[in-house]
Design a protein around this nucleic acid. Structure first.
Length: 552
DNA sequence: GCCGTTTTCGGCCCGACTGTTTTCAGTCG
């Protein structure tokens, strides 16, 4: 097992112990140890014992657990907990606002072990009767279960992409010409079904080929001679595989890859003998629209003003600006992160560790900042083609002020201002807080503007138009957080950012080296919203970027 | 279960909030 999986397993074990009410301090210690292991630089599975014992909270028992986990993927304690816990409890544990203690109460007092039963209990006002519960918690639980049920067949873009790759490999022997279509070909941030087009001259034999593949479960009611529908074992997301002969493929790819609104706007169903995508547009005197933009949203207005060649590309990026290191909650050192960034061919690395208010994430105290800046100055001596920029991801405090005093803020090259705590706000409060932060003269970039986590938590409500106006007026860039967990700014608002001339910064929010690659998701979703190279902050040459930060 | 001594037991990570209480437990980031 890899470090991340081991740590995840330990955290699950902690939760299960807490649900079962097992020695509170034993589980607290394991939780503490897991945090230490999470930060561990080497590979846990083959490090020596002394290194493990050096981690705070790790003693004989934890070492045994970790070793068992690393080698077998489980351990006796975990086996025992899994055996004693109905699987539905694990789903209930995912509900925000319900911790292990409350889940334990629900299980013991109401005998509930399934989400559906918990929802029914909410409807019957049983939850609010429990000690420590009330109307508010019951309403919150009800809303969250409905949210989970609505989303349980959906996947984030990154997960859908990986599953799609797996399916392409599975299907390749049967269908040499196979393409991805549907939402994934449009780079939607959340995918509700996986759509493929398989070229075949034997429409009626195609079905059977898929049925013969291990793991492919056919939904006979939804399938037809023209399309197989079903799912892959172990995955809830619906899969569609449409069949087309060579002459129909371009048209079908366009049809299934485009939102119906887009099809309507190009009069798709009135068009005959489609041979090339270009002709679909040219026949209507329209400019060509790239696949990812085909939503029937604002792409035609955009195309009236811009060319597809103006869209940002991965190769246009000159550096990246929102990253973490072991100074706060990152997994790799500042030097490792910077070197990895340089290896990607970028010309600068912006470090933006957490600020002091985010104590849970190891936010930087003043002395840490001094230490980090000294290290950056030293590292910057070692390169001529590359440099580290001194940034910070400073918390936007509940009153809208920015963490740190002006003297400290002035010591950074730039400041990413983000909300991390007190995320539950009505729009009025959220706007007051964000606008004040944007107006702060030290703010350079507004970080993850809504705080959303895709398929997990909706962000706080904001009036994006007013936020963009404030950004423009104050020389602040807005972040397109490229982590596939967030992809926040929502791409639907990028069109307006472009119209208003607001710079968008594609920020990976990387907490480890591999996280730097998330910039690709940012580019894909940015293009979907019409993001221009000219208004991508981290596509600017370094001197222009610095001028932007200086608000010159 | 682990740690660190006021060294073999007693105490255990932070700060803030929320929804429950009527002083606090549970949860979150």
């Amino acid at each position: 097992m890899e470090n991340e999986q081991i740590v995840d397993a330990l955290e699950l074990l902690v939760k299960l112990w807490d649900v079962h009410g097992i020695n509170e301090f034993k589980s607290k210690n394991l939780s503490f140890a897991a945090r230490g292991l999470d930060k561990f630089a080497g590979r846990i599975a083959n490090c020596d014992l002394d290194a493990l014992y050096a981690i705070p909270g790790v003693g004989k028992v934890v070492v045994q657990i970790v070793q068992d986990m690393a080698q077998t993927g489980t351990c006796p304690d975990m086996d025992a907990m899994i055996e004693q816990t109905p699987p539905g409890i694990l789903d209930i544990l995912k509900i925000k606002g319900l911790g292990p203690k409350k889940v334990g109460v629900i299980w013991r007092e109401l005998g509930i072990t399934e989400l559906d039963d918990l929802l029914a209990a909410c409807h019957a006002n049983q939850l609010e009767q429990l000690k420590g519960f009330g109307k508010a918690i019951q309403e919150n639980v009800k809303a969250y279960i409905l949210f989970l049920k609505e989303n349980r067949r959906k996947l984030r873009l990154d997960k859908a992409g990986k599953l799609s790759q797996q399916l392409l490999e599975l299907l390749a022997p049967a269908f040499p010409i196979l393409t991805v279509s549907g939402e994934l070909s449009r780079n939607c941030e959340v995918i509700s079904s996986l759509v493929f087009i398989a070229e075949t001259s034997d429409m009626f034999g195609a079905q059977g080929l898929i049925e013969g593949i291990v793991g492919m479960q056919t939904d006979y009611q939804q399938s037809s001679p023209f399309a197989w529908r079903g799912h892959l074992d172990g995955h809830l997301i619906p899969i569609e595989i449409h069949f087309a002969d060579a002459s129909q493929r371009v048209a079908l790819q366009f049809q299934l890859g485009s939102n119906p609104e887009h099809l309507a706007q190009v009069n798709f169903f009135q068009q005959k003998n489609i041979q090339h995508e270009e002709s679909i547009y040219s026949s209507q005197q329209l400019r060509f629209i790239v696949p990812e933009m085909r939503e029937g949203f604002k792409e035609f207005d955009w195309a009236a003003k811009h060319q597809a060649s103006e869209l940002v590309q991965l190769a246009d990026l000159t550096g990246c600006l929102h990253n973490h290191s072991t100074y706060s909650d990152g997994k790799n050192t500042l030097k490792e992160m910077a070197e990895a960034c340089r290896a990607l061919g970028l010309s600068y690395f912006g470090i933006a560790d957490h600020s002091q208010y985010a104590a849970y994430a190891g936010g930087l105290k003043e002395e840490d900042i001094m230490r980090q800046h000294a290290e950056i100055d030293a590292l910057n001596q070692t390169w001529t083609d590359f440099q580290i920029l001194k940034g910070i991801e400073a918390d936007i405090l509940p009153d809208g002020s920015i963490d740190y005093n002006d003297r400290i803020l002035a010591s950074f090259d730039y400041v990413v201002a983000s909300v991390h705590a007190q995320l539950v706000m009505d729009q009025e409060r959220a706007m007051g807080r964000l606008i004040k932060a944007i107006e702060n003269p030290y703010t350079s970039i507004l970080g993850h503007p809504t705080g959303r986590l895709l398929l997990t938590r909706n962000g706080y409500p904001i009036d994006t138009s007013k936020i963009l106006d404030a950004c423009k007026a104050n020389g602040v860039s807005i972040e397109l957080n490229a982590s596939p967990y967030r992809l926040d700014l929502d791409w639907r608002h990028i069109y307006e950012a472009m119209d208003k001339g607001v710079y968008v910064s594609i920020n990976p929010d990387a907490h480890k080296i591999e996280g730097l690659k998330d910039m690709e998701y940012g580019v894909r979703v940015g293009r979907k919203g019409g993001l221009l190279k000219a208004l991508t902050l981290n596509a600017l040459p370094l001197n222009e970027l610095k001028a932007f930060f200086a608000k010159a």
